[in-house]
Amino acid sequence: MRDFTIVAVSAGLGKPSSTRLLADRLGEATVTALKAQGAGAKVENIELRDLAHDVVNTMLTGFPSGAMPEVLEKVTGADGLIAVTPVFTTSYSGLFKSFVDVIDPESLTGMPVLLGATGGTARHSLALEYSMRPLFTYLHADLVTTSVFAATDDWAGEAGTVSPLPKRIERAGGELAARIAGARHQGPAGLYDNVPSFEDMLGR
Rank of each mutant, 00 (worst) to 15 (best):
R2Q: 09
T5H: 15
I6H: 00
A8F: 00
A8S: 15
V9W: 01
V9H: 01
S10I: 02
G14M: 05
R20H: 14
R20A: 15
R25S: 11
R25M: 11
L26P: 00
G27N: 02
G27Q: 03
G27W: 00
T30R: 04
Q37G: 13
Q37A: 15
G40P: 08
G40R: 08
A41K: 00
K42E: 15
N45E: 14
N45R: 14
I46F: 01
L51R: 02
L51K: 01
H53T: 12
V55E: 04
N57M: 14
N57Q: 14
T58Y: 03
M59Q: 13
L60T: 11
L60Q: 13
G62V: 06
F63R: 11
F63Y: 12
G66C: 07
M68S: 08
M68K: 02
E70A: 15
E70H: 12
V75W: 00
T76Y: 05
G77C: 02
D79K: 01
P86G: 10
T89F: 10
S93T: 13
L95V: 11
F96N: 01
S98A: 12
F99Q: 02
F99A: 02
V100R: 00
V100W: 00
D104P: 07
S107L: 11
T109S: 10
P112K: 03
V113M: 03
L114S: 01
G116S: 07
G116M: 08
A117F: 03
R123T: 09
R123L: 13
H124P: 06
S125N: 10
L128S: 09
E129S: 10
E129H: 06
S131I: 05
R133I: 07
L135H: 05
L135Q: 05
F136G: 06
H140Y: 07
A141N: 04
V144P: 03
V144C: 07
T145Q: 06
T145D: 09
V148G: 01
A150I: 01
A151R: 02
T152R: 10
A156H: 13
G157E: 12
A159I: 13
S163W: 06
P164F: 04
P166Y: 11
K167E: 15
I169D: 05
R171I: 10
E175A: 07
L176R: 03
A177I: 09
A178Y: 05
A181M: 04
A181I: 05
A189N: 06
V195H: 04
P196Q: 11
F198Y: 12
F198C: 03
M201W: 04
L202M: 15
L202D: 12
L202H: 15
R204L: 12
R204M: 13
